[in-house]
Each structure stands twice: as C-alpha cells, then as structure tokens.
Design a protein around this nucleic acid. Sequence first.
RNA 1: GGAUGGGUAUGCCCAGCGGCGAGGGCAGCGGACUGUAAAUCCGUUACAAAGAAACACCGCAGGUUCGAGUCCUGCCCCAUCCA
Length: 377
Amino acid sequence: MFRVLKQEGRAKRGEFRTVHGVIQTPVFMNVGTVAAIKGAVSTEDLERIHTQVELSNTYHLHVRPGDKIIKQLGGLHKFMSWDRPILTDSGGFQVFSLAGLRKIKEEGVYFHSHIDGRKIFMGPEESMQIQSNLASTIAMAFDECAPSLADRSYVQASVERTSRWLERCKAEMDRLNVREDTINKNQLLFGINQGAIYADIRTAHAKQIARLGLDGYAIGGLAVGESHEEMYYIIEETVPFLPEDKPVYLMGVGTPANILEGVERGIDFFDCVYPSRNGRHGHLYTNHGKINLFNAKYELDDRPIEEGCGCPACRRYSRAYIRHLLKAKEMLGMRLCVLHNLYFYNTMMEEIRDALDAGEFAAYKKRKLAGFAGIQQ
RNA sequence: GGAUGGGUAUGCCCAGCGGCGAGGGCAGCGGACUGUAAAUCCGUUACAAAGAAACACCGCAGGUUCGAGUCCUGCCCCAUCCA
C-alpha cells in the first residue's frame, strides 16, 4: 500500500495506494471538518487547486447531520461529491478542543454537544462505527489529544488509556470491515502516538503501537502549546520507532515552515486549519512570508496576492479588490483567500515532491525558508 | 414665527434621567489563530499613573443643589411637522 519511491535523509517521497486513488506523498490534506472547506469552497474547487485528500471529522458529522444519514445516502464520498481519498479524524481532537464539554472515562468520552448540549458518548467502538458509516478512505484511531503542558503522570495515564483504546479500535475496525452492509470494506486505520513532550513516553508508545500492523501511524498531540523546537525534537525522537514501511502523519501541523521541517524528519501526511482559517481572516501565504490583506497598506495595491501564482484568486484579482471584498464582508473575499492559501500549500507539497524526486530537498527547503523569512511585501 | 424630538469623549449611531473620574455598538487601525465550538477572538486613541493626589469631559452660558450629562432659565445648532 505504501511505497517509498525515494529517500533523502529521513525525508521520503512515497505513494500510498487506496481504493479511492493513489496519494502522492508528502501530502497536505485539506481540512473540511463538517464535510465542507469553510469559506464556500466546493469539491469542484478542490479539484482545481490540486487537493489530493480531504479531511473531515467524526464528532462533527455525527452531531450533524448524523453518520447514519450519510450512510443511507451512500457514504461521505457520494454525499459531498468527492471521489478521491478522505481521511476522517476520530473525535480525539475534540477531547482536547471541547475540554469544557466532556468527561473522560475508561470506556470512552461523554460529550455535551456544542450545538444543543445533548449527551453524546463516544468510545473507540463508536468512533469506528461512525467512521465506517461515513466510509472514509482512512479512519483515525480514537485517542485523547492531551495538552502539551499536561504533567507527566497525567500524560502517562492518558497514553496508556489511548493504547487500550487503540486495540479496541483495531478489533472493531476488523469486525466492521467484514460486515455485509459496510460501504467501504477496505477502510484503513491509522494509529496515533501520544506522549506530549516527554520523549521517553513517546518512544515507548511508538514501539508498542508499531507492533499492531496498522495501515499508518500518526503523531498527535503536537502543536498544542509547546514550542517549535520541542515539537521538532519530539518528531525526531519518535519517527525512528514507527514502522518504516508505513506512512507517518503529523496531525494538525502546521505552518509552511513546520511542514518543511516535518518532511525533513520523515513525515508523510500533514493537515492543518491554518490555510483555510487564516484565509478567512485575511492572512495570505506567499513565498515571501505571510501578508494580512486587512492592513491599510494594501488599499491601493493592484498586484495579485502573489506574482506568478496560478490560483483562481491570483490569476484574476488584485490585493486591493480582495481587501475590499474582505472589508465589505463579501463571501467572495474569504473564498478567494482560502483558495489561494490551499493552492499555496498544495503547490508547496508538489514542489517538495519534485525536489525529493530530484534529490534536492535540502536545497529546496533552505531556499524556501529563506524566502519566508524575507521582507514582507 | 410656532410645536415636538434631538445634540454624549475621536468619524458615525446610541445608553445613561441627581452620586459619572460617563457605558456600549459600528467604522477605522493593529494583533492572534496549528487533527476547526473560529466569516472568530483580542487590543486600541484626553491627562496622570495607584498618589486622597490630580482633573479633560456630555452643543454654549448661567442657575438650583453637599453633588448636575441628568433638574431650571436663556441662547446656538439639527430633524420633523404647522404657519
């Protein structure tokens, strides 16, 4: 399923075969939590901006519209009209982000819906069942994303529970994949490594889950409060203990620089809300750093967001016009910004793959980072 | 000429109806955001700076009161209506 085509240090150029098509790695997955990229981006748009994998969320789709409804409608691919790979996050991140609305127990997590307050129980089995109903390409194991500032004893206990949950996820997924009425009987399962910023907990956990023969392995619980240096250190320490023949997914990360550093340290999959959320907020990624289109200095700027960019925004519209749309709260402004940012990320991943193919990743990374650090336009 | 309603810090809109060193919204400007409770959130524009010391202020000027943005009188301006 996962084939490493080329390697440069720990950086890998690979191919991941799925029933919904081949994923060229390293890849950045475009986040559409509720089966929609926020900012009025359609799946047709995703094709235009070279998206390989769309990412949606188990908890959010369970709450609304309901995974059973999506199953009745033929699964998530048919529902949102997207026939390429989809990865569904398990709800584990909501254990972190909705911390005020949930209680963790051995059996699973009791949430109060952020929509209407109703009680929702989600354990490993429930998360797998929901993801099976959604019929995503890749399901994520149900974990606890613990805060990186959590103390050692908490993290130790949390990781042990996440391990027990992982075995339950695996057993449940194996059961669901042979059921008659399962839409995607080839649904893949990725396990998630945790351990906050404690390298020894991370590596012990990595060794333990590596034995389970999962389809891929994720590093979770990073970029949740620790420094970049701590994050990079944890990645360096952890990756060597994950199976070499399986893709490694760094969850929720990150900035373009984070991605370059991640690739160098052996990461194959990334995802982050940054390009879409920052796009909606008027922050645009360019090869010369990030710009905030809300700033008054762009009022009369008739250049595109980035000269030479092939995205739907840059091909046709000026900074001044898009700034006007944003300030006027016209949806088109956000949409164009999100399209630009996702295109920027997807294009950067293409460049990374090309560089790896050519054996020039190190030089590419250096050049790219120097550009980001340059003077903002 | 008359009637009624208004003029509140910095551009606009407004709250306050005797204890006010006057509150909010919008706009403007800036910032934050990492497996999305986020088209969100935060900051922001007299002076001073924790000192019973100093003192800008509610269209303007007086007055009543221990105390006035608030009550009274006059004036100015705006809106609507009537002549």
